[in-house]
Nucleic acid binder design. Structure first.
Length: 170
DNA sequence: GAATGGATTGTCT
DNA sequence: GACAATCCATTCA
């Protein structure tokens, strides 16, 4: 969830992708430590936000895998709180299940930008909480939207959820 | 200070 | 299903 002066917006994560280690060609840590991916080398549990295609902010949860830098890209949410605020940011005509469908769209709906980079996901205004959830079917498959490392089946999503992006691979 | 490219999206056929 | 738009931050000189 993300708390801003404009209000709070939150959703349940329904789609993620894993980017693990410098050996993963699609991971931002692949070129080695740089200024941009510095958060990946920081402590687990912080946010890693960056601008993609000059237009979309993507948000990751930094983790750690056997000492290697790793992150989980949040690709889609099921809107839970702050629907009106999300529409204000995305457009009044946007359908509920489209508000946070896709990594670029969800950051826009939640109002996340570079200023949210490196925030502590446990105790800042941007958090990921375990609120428990109903047991649902989860699918796994190849990652999408990237040019390298597509062979790794590290994309996970809630089976059949309307907010899941994935028009490239079904 | 200039060049480069991308973990996307939306629109068209 | 395919392709082009978009453009800032990062990178490199």
């Amino acid at each position: 969830m993300h708390r801003t002066p404009a209000g709070t917006a939150a959703g349940m994560i329904v789609e993620t992708e894993a980017y693990i280690g410098e050996d993963d060609p699609a991971c931002h840590a692949a070129p080695g430590p740089t200024r941009r991916n510095a958060p990946l080398y920081g402590p687990p549990g912080i946010a890693y936000v960056y601008l993609n295609y000059g237009i979309h902010y993507l948000v990751n949860a930094v983790t750690e895998a056997d000492g290697h830098p790793a992150a989980v890209l949040i690709r889609a949410l099921s809107p839970v709180e702050g629907l009106a605020l999300m529409r204000k940011r995305r457009g009044e005509e946007v359908a509920e299940h489209d508000l946070c469908r896709g990594p670029g769209n969800l950051t826009k709906a939640l109002g996340i930008s570079l200023s949210e980079n490196e925030l502590d996901l446990m105790s800042s205004r941007l958090t990921i909480e375990d609120r428990g959830c109903e047991v649902v079917a989860v699918s796994r498959g190849p990652r999408i939207g990237i040019r390298v490392g597509v062979d790794k089946p590290w994309r996970y999503w809630v089976t059949g959820h309307p907010s899941v992006s994935g028009r490239v691979i079904k």
